[in-house]
Simulated scan of single mutants.
Amino acid sequence: MGDSTIRQWFLYLFKAVPTLNRVYLPINVQMGPLKAVDLKNNIVMHFRSHGLPLHCGKIPVEYFHYMSSEIDGLPGGPDTVIMFNLCAHLASYPLTYYGYRVWLIRRSVVALLKRAPGTRVIIKTANTGYNKKHFYRSDWLTMQVDRILREAFRDMGVYIVDVWQMTACHYLKDDLHPAPLIVQNEVDILLSFICPL
């Protein structure tokens, strides 16, 4: 669940795993839900946006689902992995509003881990990529949002995929939507949390 940068993970995995078959639903690709299924290996992969606020075109209200509500509806368990991020679209809003949204998600994650302790929760941090100076969106504002997210989930037993460092230090040009090579590196770290040796 999250924004277009976590949708990049979904699309990357769909292309990289030959046994995944995409289920084409009559939906808005930006919002989801997107779904891919691998019947041979018993894998079902979903993507859904994080809900409002989003910076995109006109979308019917029934497509908006908040992450806290989605997490509350999941049974969880040892075969469930939840990945989410909540950064880019909220970086231009007051930090108090962002903190409230993160608190709602944290509350839902705490409840999920209590009812299904084997569930793996993985959080993707914010990435850099605002290559043009903009008053409402910048790496500086995004970094503040990223710090709130990290602090809210510290010492909770969730995994953090630190893409901030990966996107800030990479030789490829800054882009809010990282290049495929960076996405591959991010997914490699993600998979190390899902399938440890």
Rank of each mutant, 00 (worst) to 15 (best):
T5F: 14
W9L: 08
P75L: 15
Q8N: 10
K40Y: 07
G57N: 13
L86F: 07
Y98I: 08
N41W: 14
F10K: 02
I71H: 06
A36L: 02
D79M: 02
L39G: 05
V29N: 01
R7S: 03
F64M: 05
L34C: 09
S69Y: 11
Y66R: 09
L25A: 11
H89N: 15
G77V: 14
A16I: 01
S49H: 15
F10A: 08
F64H: 02
S68D: 12
G77A: 04
Y97T: 06
R22N: 00
S68L: 01
L25Q: 15
A88G: 06
E62G: 03
V44G: 00
Y63P: 00
H50I: 01
D72M: 06
A88L: 08
I27K: 09
E62M: 00
L11Y: 15
P26K: 11
S68N: 06
L90G: 12
L74S: 09
I82R: 07
L52W: 12
C56D: 01
A36C: 07
E62N: 03
D79L: 03
V29L: 04
G73S: 15
Y98Q: 00
N21G: 01
S92R: 11
P53E: 09
H46N: 13
L95P: 06
P53I: 13
I82K: 13
R22H: 01
R22L: 00
Y93T: 06
K58T: 12
T5E: 06
H46T: 13
I6K: 04
E70T: 08
V29M: 01
H89W: 10
N28F: 14
A16R: 14
A16P: 02
Y24V: 14
D72A: 07
C87H: 12
V37E: 11
A91S: 15
V81E: 00
H65N: 10
S68H: 12
V61N: 10
W9K: 04
L54R: 05
C87F: 02
Y98T: 01
V17I: 15
P78A: 14
Y12S: 08
L86C: 14
G57V: 03
H46L: 11
S69W: 10
V44I: 14
L52R: 11
F10R: 06
R48S: 06
P18W: 07
L74Y: 05
M31Y: 12
L52T: 14
G73A: 15
V17N: 10
L86R: 08
S4C: 03
P78E: 11
L34D: 02
P94N: 11
L90M: 09
I43Q: 07
P33V: 02
I6P: 03
M83L: 07
M83I: 08
D72V: 00
S92P: 07
L95H: 08
C56R: 02
P60M: 04
P33K: 02
L90E: 09
